[in-house]
Design a protein around this nucleic acid. Structure first.
Lengths: 153, 153
DNA sequence: CTAATAGTCCACTAAATCTATAGGGTATAT
DNA sequence: ATATACCCTATAGATTTAGTGGACTATTAG
């Protein structure tokens, strides 16, 4: 499971993506709309800003906005910032590898073989999905719910 | 990341799989061989026993053994016991679904769409891999390390 | 200039979870 | 009987999670 911190961060990101190019968005607006404790959200957005995912503007008319175009932000990157490594074992993580002290032989560790498979498909999806791409999917889902079916090429 | 508890449990399971049909194995043996704190391991194995994954025998000559044949034990089942749901969000979990209170519309929740994809491939692997199957892969890996290459049909 | 706005930063806490450890209890084979 | 080895309860330190409070600083409007 991802932490609430991560869930909140991703929800906020999707919200900001939806309002991309509409100028800075207030933390209070995101907090209200997405039902996230505001102070908690502040800390999360600050973290994302410090990692370059978001930008902010202080003072009147300020707020948060995406740091780059939505097609350049992947979920893998954001989840690693907020939740830590995607791999299920430290000895697999690309971003923060750590040897298991108790492991006799990494090459033939059954657990490692299995967890590597999982990591590969998981990060395949998460690093392969951009904010822009998911927003598209959401729109398609909404169309289908409304009865109209949209076909993408 | 999975917890150490889960990692230890899975390592022990692989160890017991390797010694399947060799009679009960002592907790102390597993603990020593796999470098796992013994008391901690006791609690983990007991948990697995209470869920039917393992059997135990008390008294002299006792110990732990698999509760079923290795081709009937999947990693998905064991991980859910030791680590909880495989899904990254409660609103996706098959085994312990819980609605996100803050979610407006589950059908069109972008996060849910993405996390469902991840859950599907992850549990595809974990529920599709049995202890027996992984032990096979380990053997193949060992052969390759030794220079011989084995081809499976 | 200054007042209002809105992000920034720091410290703190309560609760939960994780990772064990200690110590005795109970069933079993010899 | 008795040694063996799992079973059970309690406890405790460390870490993570989730959230709050308050002071500070940058920016803009007037």
């Amino acid at each position: 499971m991802i932490s609430k911190r991560t869930k909140y961060g991703l929800k906020a990101l999707l919200y900001l993506g939806k309002k991309y190019e509409k100028g800075p968005i207030l933390v209070s607006e995101i907090a209200t709309e997405e039902s996230i404790p505001q102070k908690f959200l502040e800390a999360i957005l600050l973290d994302l800003k410090n990692h370059g995912i978001l930008q902010s503007k202080k003072g009147k008319g300020g707020g948060y906005l995406l740091g780059r175009s939505p097609d350049l932000i992947t979920f893998g990157e954001v989840i690693r910032i907020l939740d830590g490594p995607i791999a299920l074992l430290p000895c697999i993580s690309q971003t923060s590898y750590q040897k298991c002290e108790e492991c006799h032989d990494e090459e033939t560790c059954g657990l490692r073989i299995l967890m590597k498979e999982v990591r590969d498909v998981t990060s395949g999806i998460l690093d392969g999905t951009t904010l822009a791409r998911l927003m598209d999917k959401v729109n398609n889902a909404k169309m289908e719910v409304n009865g109209a079916v949209m076909y993408t090429i």
